[in-house]
Design a protein around this nucleic acid. Structure first.
Length: 470
RNA sequence: GCGCCCAUCGUCUAGCGGUCUAGGACGUCGCCCUUUCACGGCGAAAACAGGGGUUCGAGUCCCCUUGGGCGCGCCA
């Protein structure tokens, strides 16, 4: 497969032309602040970020907020917060709303070279024509009627008060590019409508600002969802019409679909990063699942974002849509938690007032039993707080409390204590341990009691065995 | 409707004509560990969408069917 070779090609080039050093890659993630980011969005952001990191490159966060109607400041903030939580620190942040003069200049340049032409059809007219074409089995493509307008026609229309919207005139050709994930790709512009770049009210649609910013900011790699492949032909043409700079490389990753198979696009109000965070999902689990699923890499828990950059290769992403299953995310989040060492959660534990000399041994004992970090509070209460013990067998617990050894306790205390009880009562297995666990922790399942007992301490243990809240 | 892309275990995938009685991971199930549960370790079951070709030989190449994704906006 040709698209698995570019790495080799690059290094070959570097050997033969050592003086031609590639500029460091610069990627961009370009959300429109019309909502919170969701798992699909976040995946694109993460893929860009991990790619940049793996190549020693930079990451631009660009807010595509040219749609003034729908863009909201609160979403700009929320997106930055969500991205930061995921571990993404943009090197540069820009807003398209602050750059309109640049787009205006670009639009003028396109008019000057005759590639941007005014159209006077109304939205309703266009809609009607599209339906007509579809009914006839034809592709719904703009017929370029406006191109045939004589100057006099325009003058008359303008006199009637009609304001034009502006279309980019596509050159008839098949546009080719070597997609970073999909390999050799091509689009015949004959199957496309000339894209509207400027609205009737003079504002810009996504297409022009996007290309202009990619040029101005020297973006080298455009990594985005597969839903943008068709746009690529248009963007390459606009790019070339505007500048002699090299066209960026494009990589279109597969899309996520819901477990049932239906699309998981931004329109379906998919799981937001914010709600995932609130439900206790680990950011690292989201990152791992987002970049690993749908690729030939095994999905596995990670302990740092950097881990994902190590074997990262866009060519390892599949061209088939991948299912996103929240249950899988949850399970991965749980396994992630079980691997985290104390240092990496120290600050977050402190937020639950889990500090002091018991904090680390507590974490090591409890982490394997957590579904989410939210659960630590419950286990910390078992160790340091007060709980109401569950008494299953009063007489047995009485015996147990009487054989409780004197402190100091360590991890061997549990073994020697329970051996003594077993000896005295003849109990073993579940009959022996279940009542002890219930009395000591008030829960059916939990961390190894050998590790928990010394943290609970004699005073609390003794009281709980006697059925007292402690 | 038209165009582009795709099709291997439940899920994510390896596989680039013989080495595939199809490999891995997650999940599932079983066993072990812990004189309990959870965590952990080990093992098992589980797939080439269907039909035609090409070839000595096809999961691998071609065509059709079926199924799926995306696109076809004065959205991004």
């Amino acid at each position: 497969m040709p698209h698995r070779l570019p790495q080799a090609d690059m290094s070959a080039l570097a050997i033969w032309f050592p003086r031609i050093s590639m500029p460091p890659p610069l990627v961009r993630f370009a959300p429109s602040p019309t909502g919170r980011i969701h798992i699909g969005n976040a995946r694109t952001a993460l893929l860009n970020y991990v790619f940049a990191r793996s190549q020693g490159g930079g990451f631009v966060l660009r807010f595509d907020d040219t749609d003034r109607e729908r863009s909201r400041e609160e979403f700009v903030q929320a997106i930055e917060v969500d991205l930061a939580w995921l571990g993404i620190r943009p090197d540069v942040t820009v807003r398209q709303s602050a750059r309109e003069a640049i787009y205006a200049a670009a639009a003028q340049r396109l008019r000057d070279i005759g590639r941007l032409y005014p159209c006077y059809e109304t939205a309703e007219e266009l809609e009607r024509r599209r339906r007509l074409q579809q009914a006839r089995g034809l592709p719904p493509i703009y017929d370029r009627a406006a191109l045939k307008l004589a100057p006099a026609d325009r003058t008359r229309l303008e006199a009637e008060g009609r304001r034009p919207h502006w279309r980019f005139q596509l050159a008839p050709e098949t546009v080719h590019w070597r997609d970073l994930v999909r390999g050799d790709s091509h689009i015949d512009t004959a199957s496309l409508s000339d894209p509207v770049l400027v609205r009737e009210d003079g504002s810009y649609l996504y297409t022009l600002p996007s290309v202009v910013d990619d040029i101005e900011l020297d973006i080298t790699h455009v990594i985005r969802g597969e839903d943008h492949v068709t746009n690529t032909a248009v963007q390459i043409q606009i790019f070339k019409a505007l500048t002699d700079k090299p066209v960026p490389a494009f990589g279109h990753h597969n899309l996520l679909v819901a477990a049932g198979g239906e699309g998981l696009s931004k329109r379906t109000g998919a799981l937001s990063i914010g709600s995932l965070r609130d439900s206790g999902i680990e950011a690292l689990a989201i990152a791992a699942l987002a970049v690993l699923t749908g690729s030939s890499h095994e999905v596995h828990p990670i302990v740092s974002l950097a881990e994902l950059s190590e074997n990262f290769d866009l060519a390892h992403i599949s061209r088939t849509p991948a299912r996103f299953d929240p249950a899988e995310l949850k399970a991965l989040s749980q396994r992630t938690l079980h691997k985290l060492d104390f240092e990496s959660v120290r600050d977050r534990l402190a937020a639950y007032d889990i500090t002091g000399f018991k904090a680390e041994p507590f974490w090591l004992a409890a982490r394997g039993n957590l579904e989410t970090l939210l659960d630590v509070a419950d286990w910390w209460r078992v160790v340091e707080g007060e709980i109401e013990p569950v008494v299953e067998d009063r007489a047995f617990l009485q015996t147990a409390s009487e054989s409780l050894p004197e402190e100091p306790w360590d991890e061997t205390t549990w073994k020697s204590w329970t051996s003594a009880i077993a000896h005295e009562t003849g109990r073993k297995g579940r009959a022996l341990f279940h009542p002890l666990r219930l009395a000591l922790t008030a829960r059916e399942t939990g961390p190894e009691l050998a590790k928990l007992l010394p943290l609970i301490g004699r005073a609390k243990a003794s009281a709980r065995l006697r059925g007292l809240a402690a």
